[in-house]
Design a protein around this nucleic acid. Structure first.
Length: 482
RNA sequence: CGGGGCGUAGCGCAGCCUGGUAGCGCACCUGGUUCGGGACCAGGGGGUCGGAGGUUCAAAUCCUCUCGCCCCGACCA
């Protein structure tokens, strides 16, 4: 039997990515205890390890949202149908996936409530009451919330009926200021996703066919998963004055004229956890970027004899003290599992660095570190671990981003025609295909129809697409997508 | 929503064709020995076979309906 066949005997073993990527994904999400299925169809339970990831993401993104002048607030879960219906495109976009509350207590409601699929309507309604003067602008509010969309086909983190996200909703005096906000937040997302999640993205604008229901323009960051499919990782919408007009959000300008505000909305969701899994994971399991990993380093104590045990325990206590407040550390001193078992377990769960402490290490007053991304080993003296380990974690973070970027770049091709794009995807190739696009809906629709690839975005950074740049067309990235 | 597949112990599966009172591996519990890449021995606990109805002396097994999940397509963060 080969090694891989032998390994299959273990419960915690995973399907190889190359055998069945979807299956690998489902297994790793559940076995690493990120999430589990719930008794509610299409809904999942986010387990502590997965929620810890989300909390770290929240903290890092929330900081950026506040640094750009926004405040958090909370709007209600239930949205009156009458409010939702005010904006035709919007309600058209969400109608098929709304869940409705029709009863309260034992009485049927006169007007049913939608469980929010997003909050433009309720927030627009409130803004119309809050905004009177140009002095009230801009309004820069974000909320962290759950939303619900009645999805027919669900997948853990990628598409569930209920999911967690943040949604920013802003109102501005001028179109230019709103557009500036849209692009500012897109850049915040790009920076957050690349630097904290180590996921490289193409930032750009959506086509009319792909933009958000009710938006004037939608901007997006698009990531590439290891199976070659693209994933929309965040969106930022220029809402123009559509919602301002239907919700009557107006202000008096300096000359006393009544004007409609210009609005934006932008969001990222727990889908980013799915992106993280599929960007970095390998056949052994997750590989988490240290910046968001719930456990940055796991300590595995090793002993043979009773006297080893006390020496090791003592050493581990010192190690713990040295690293307190510097690294998110977990010591696994459980007796029921061997060190080897623990190595496999924490590799599967993606812990960036493992610290092995056995009698040999105690004798040398050092710790054997093993990084998850390359399995590179390095013995670090206790005296320098407080400096070296954070540096090592930074190296892992940088390395994951670099690996993902190399993959994404290698999977991005420049093609010279619609036909070439169709042929590319129909040959079974994946990744991003860049092409000069005449802007016609027919061009886009034909590729979608014949090759199953959609226009992911028109990238704003054209530095690597120079040969496709023409005055009469725009550069468009096509991909098979989640 | 269309096509395909699967529901038997916590997980992975066998048993179903050819009905006869449910089994294997891992996990779990107890005791002991172990521990530097998934330890071993001994003992033990756990299942209305997804659900409902039917056929039969007898149903995990045959029939009907139903629910759920997975994969591939159409729609979406």
């Amino acid at each position: 039997m080969s090694e891989s066949q032998t390994r299959k005997q273990f419960v915690e073993d995973l399907t190889d990515q190359s055998d069945d990527f979807s299956r690998w994904y489902n297994e790793v999400v559940r076995k690493a205890q990120l999430a589990d299925y719930s008794p509610v169809r299409g809904s999942m339970v986010i387990r502590p390890y997965g929620y810890g990831l989300w909390e770290n993401m929240q903290r890092l993104l929330d900081r950026r949202i506040k640094e750009t002048g926004h405040q958090n607030a909370y709007f209600p879960l239930l949205i009156p149908e009458s409010l939702l219906q005010l904006e035709a495109d919007h309600v058209e976009g969400f109608a098929p996936e709304c869940a409705w509350v029709t009863e309260g207590g034992r009485e049927k409601l006169e007007e049913r409530f939608a469980i929010r699929p997003t909050s433009e309507a309720i927030i627009g309604h409130m803004y119309s009451r809050w905004i009177e003067s140009y002095r009230d602008l801009p309004v820069l509010i974000n909320q962290w919330a759950n939303v619900m969309r009645w999805e027919k086909v669900t997948r853990l983190f990628l598409r569930t009926s209920e999911f967690l996200w943040q949604e920013g909703h802003t109102a501005h005096a001028t179109q230019a200021e709103a557009r500036e906000e849209v692009l500012r937040m897109l850049e915040v997302y790009r920076d957050f996703v690349e630097n904290e999640l180590a996921i490289p993205v193409y930032a750009g604008q959506k086509s009319d066919a792909e933009r958000f229901a009710g938006a004037q323009d939608t901007f997006t960051i698009e990531a590439l998963m290891k199976d070659g499919k693209a994933l929309q990782a965040g969106t930022s919408h220029d809402l123009g004055q559509h919602f301002a007009k239907v919700f009557d959000i107006t202000y008096q300008d300096e000359s006393g004229q009544r004007q409609h505000v210009w609005q934006t909305s932008w969001g990222v969701s727990t889908r980013l956890i799915g992106a993280l899994v599929m960007t970095h994971g390998d056949d052994q399991g997750l590989r988490l970027p240290p910046q968001v990993a719930p456990i940055q380093a796991v300590v595995v104590p090793i002993w043979r004899k009773a006297e080893d045990r006390s020496a090791v325990t003592e050493f581990v206590a010192k190690l713990r003290e040295t690293l307190a407040g510097k690294v998110r550390l977990h010591v696994d001193d459980r007796d029921q599992h061997s060190p080897g078992w623990k190595y496999n377990e924490y590799e599967m769960r993606g812990v960036p660095v493992r610290l092995e402490v056995g009698p040999k290490d105690v004798a040398q007053q050092a710790i054997m570190s093993v990084r998850r991304d390359t399995r590179g080993k390095e013995s670090i003296p206790l005296a320098s671990i407080a400096e070296r380990l954070p540096a090592l974690l930074s190296e892992v973070q940088a390395s994951l981003l670099q690996q993902a970027r190399d993959f994404r770049d290698a999977q991005t091709v420049l093609l010279d025609s619609k036909e070439a794009v169709i042929a590319h995807f129909n040959e079974g190739k994946r990744g991003f295909a860049a092409v000069a696009w005449d802007g016609s809906a027919a061009f886009e629709a034909e590729i979608k129809e014949k090759a199953g690839a959609t226009l992911r975005c028109m990238p704003s950074d054209l530095s690597r697409f120079g040969s496709l740049v023409r005055p009469e067309s725009r550069v468009a990235l096509f991909a098979r997508a989640y």
